[in-house]
Design a protein around this nucleic acid. Sequence first.
DNA 1: GATGAATGAGATTTCATTCAT
DNA 2: TATGAATGAAATCTCATTCAT
Lengths: 208, 208, 208, 208
Amino acid sequence: MEAPIGVPASKRVLRSQGRQTMQRLLDAAMVAFDRRGYHATRVSDVVDIAHMSHGTFYLYFANMTDLARALTIEAAADTSMLYDAMAEVSTALDGGSRERLRAWIGDYSKLWLRYAPLFRSWTDLAAADESMGERIRQTFTTLTDGIATRISAVGRPGDLSPEVAATAVVAMLDRFHYLRDFIGRPVDDEALETLTTMIHRAVFAPVD
Amino acid sequence: MEAPIGVPASKRVLRSQGRQTMQRLLDAAMVAFDRRGYHATRVSDVVDIAHMSHGTFYLYFANMTDLARALTIEAAADTSMLYDAMAEVSTALDGGSRERLRAWIGDYSKLWLRYAPLFRSWTDLAAADESMGERIRQTFTTLTDGIATRISAVGRPGDLSPEVAATAVVAMLDRFHYLRDFIGRPVDDEALETLTTMIHRAVFAPVD
Amino acid sequence: MEAPIGVPASKRVLRSQGRQTMQRLLDAAMVAFDRRGYHATRVSDVVDIAHMSHGTFYLYFANMTDLARALTIEAAADTSMLYDAMAEVSTALDGGSRERLRAWIGDYSKLWLRYAPLFRSWTDLAAADESMGERIRQTFTTLTDGIATRISAVGRPGDLSPEVAATAVVAMLDRFHYLRDFIGRPVDDEALETLTTMIHRAVFAPVD
Amino acid sequence: MEAPIGVPASKRVLRSQGRQTMQRLLDAAMVAFDRRGYHATRVSDVVDIAHMSHGTFYLYFANMTDLARALTIEAAADTSMLYDAMAEVSTALDGGSRERLRAWIGDYSKLWLRYAPLFRSWTDLAAADESMGERIRQTFTTLTDGIATRISAVGRPGDLSPEVAATAVVAMLDRFHYLRDFIGRPVDDEALETLTTMIHRAVFAPVD
DNA sequence: GATGAATGAGATTTCATTCAT
DNA sequence: TATGAATGAAATCTCATTCAT
C-alpha cells in the first residue's frame, strides 16, 4: 500500500525508517522553536536542522501548523498526567501535604522546561488552528478542574472561588516560568520553594 | 524646519490631520492585534481596518515593528504608573492594606484589559526589536522590583524570596487575565476578590 | 478605499491604469494559451508576455483558474449572442434561409477563431472549476436549445430528435474548427460552404 | 536475454506477473483519466488506484506520457479498424446503405465509449509527445480519408468538398459523444438513429 | 519484482515596501 | 497628505523521478 503524497503523517502507515524520520522532524522543530519561536520558524529552518530536503517535510506534515499539532497532542497528553498526580497532593492536609505540593510543582516545572519552546507559543497556537485550540483549552480546563476540586476539598468556605483560584494557580505557574526565562533568571530550587509556599498559603493552608 | 519624507512619523512634525491619521492607524492596529494576534497581523489588515491605502501606512510608520513600538511606549508608561501606586499599597500593613491591595489589583486589571491585544503578545514583541525588548523587560523589572520591596517591607524572613515572589505575583496577574479570556470566563468582581485574597495570604498577610 | 491584496479583480475597484493592466493580463493569457495550451500555461508565462512581475498577477487574479474564469465569462456572453442570431436563421424556410444559415455559420466561425485558445480547453476547464463548468454547460445548452427550436419549427416529424440533432450540429461546428487546426488545414470559404450545405441538408432542407 | 532495469516496459521481457501488473496500471490510468482528465492526472493518482507504490510505476513506464502512448497505440489500432469497416458502408448505395451506415456508427459509438477517458484528451495528447502526435493525426487522417473516398464515390459533384465533409462527419461523431456526456444525456438508440439520418442526408443521400 | 523513502527542481503564492501621480 | 499600482524577495508547496532495501 502506497503512502499518499502531501498527506500528514497521521494518515500514513510508517515503517521504522519513516517513524525515525518523523521523529527527527519533530525534534528539529523543537530546536527551531526554541531558537526563533514558533511564529518565526520556517519550514527551511526545520529541515536544515534535521538535514533533510524540503520535500521530505511535506511527506510527513501538511505544513508547520500540522507539525505543531502533533507536538501539541504529545504535550497535552503529558500535561494531563499532572491532573492525575494532583489527586494525591492533598488527600491528606496534614503535615505531609506541603511536601506533596512541592513535588507536584517540581513535576510541573520539569514538564514546562521540557516543552518550553512549545509552551511559549501555546496559547498563540490556539488561535492558529481550531482543533489545536480546543485541545489546549481542554488541557487547561482539565488541570484547573483538578486543582479546583482539591481546593474545594480543603474547604475554606466563602472567601475563595475554587474555580477562580485554580485558574490563578495555573496562570502563576505557567507564566512564572516564562517570565523567569524572559528576565534571564533561573527556575531553581529556591524559586520552586517560594512558589510552593505561596500556593500553599494562598489556597491550601488553614487560616487562623 | 522641513519634515523628512519616507521616514517614520516619530521623526516628523505632524499637523492636526496627520496626528489624527496616525491615531487611526494605532487604533486599527489594536483591533487587528485583537482579532488575529500580533504575529498574524499584516500591514494590509491594519490599513483595511483603518480604511486607508498601504502607502499611507508607510507615511507614518517604517513598518509594523515601528508601530508596535509606539504602542509599547504608551503601554509601558501607563504600566509604570502602577509601580508608583504600589508604593501606597503596603505603607501600612494595618487593617487598611487589603483594601489598598484590592484597589491596586483593580487598577492593574483595568490596564490589562485596555491593552489586552498588546499584552497578549507583549513578551513576544521583545524578540522583534531590541529597543522594544529592553523597554518591556524594564517595565516588568520595575514592577517586580516595586512589589519585591513591599514584600521585603512586610518582613517574613527566610521563607520567601521577595524577588521570586514578586515575579510570581506579576506572572499570576498577567496570565490570569489571558487565561480567563482564553477559556471564556470573565474577570469580574468575584475573580478580583479571590485574586486579592490569594496574593494577600501568599505574601502580605502575617503568618501565625 | 484600499484594494485588498490577493483578491480577484472582480472584487476590487479599479481605476483606468488598473483596468488596463488587467486587460494586458487577459490578452497575455490568450497568447500563452495559444502557444502552449491552458494546462501547460504557467503564471510566469503570462507575466513574461505581459512584461510584469509575478506579484502583479496576484493583484488581479487569485490564480490561473480565476483568470480563465474571467475569459470564460466573456466568451460565454459572446457565444450566447449567437443564440439570439439563430432566431433569424429559419424564420422563413424559403429560398433565403440557406443564406441566413451560411451567415450564421460564418459568425460562429469568427467567434470560434477569436476565442480558439480558450475553446480548445473549453470543456477541460469545466472540470477544473465548478462555477466555470456550470457556465460552459449553460452556454452549450442555450445554443442547442435555440437550434432545437428552429429544427422543430421546420417540422420533419418523427425522423429526427430536435434536441439530439441540435447537439450534433453544435458538436460538428465546434470540433470541426478544432480538427482543421489539428490536421493543419484552413477553415476557409469552401469549408464553410460545405458545412452549410451539410447542416442544411441534414436538418433544414425539405425531404423529397 | 537480460531485461534492462529502469527502462520502460516496452523494452523489457515480461513474465506473466509482470504483464498483469502492467495491465493493472493501464486500467488504473483509464480510471484516473476518467475521474480527473489526462492533464490533471498525477502518477500518484494512478498508483493509488492500482494499489501500488510509485517505484513500481517506473518499473513499467518511463513517465505518464509513456503510459499514455501505450494506451494511444491500442486505441489507434482499434480505431483504424473502423477505416476498413467504412469500406463496406457504401460499396452499394442502394437501399441497404443506410443500415450499413447505422451499423458503422454504432461501432464507432462503442469504440468511443470504451476509450472515452482517452478520447476526451485525445488531441491534447498530441502536444505532449511527437510520436504520439503523429499517430493520432494519422488515425484521424486515415479515418477522414476513408470517409472522403466514400463521399467521392457517391458523387454529388461540386457542392461538397469530400475532404471537408469527411472531417465534419468525424468531428460531429467525436464531439457529439463528448457533449452528450458533458450535458448529462445518453447516447442511446434514438441518438444514434438521428445521427445516422443526419449524416446520410448530409453526405450520402441522393439529392432531388 | 516490489516497496517505502527521499530528493530537488520548479511552480505557486504572500506580503513588506517603494513609487509615480 | 494620500493613493492605487507595482515590485521582487522569500516562503510555501507539488510532484516526477531516483534509490536502497
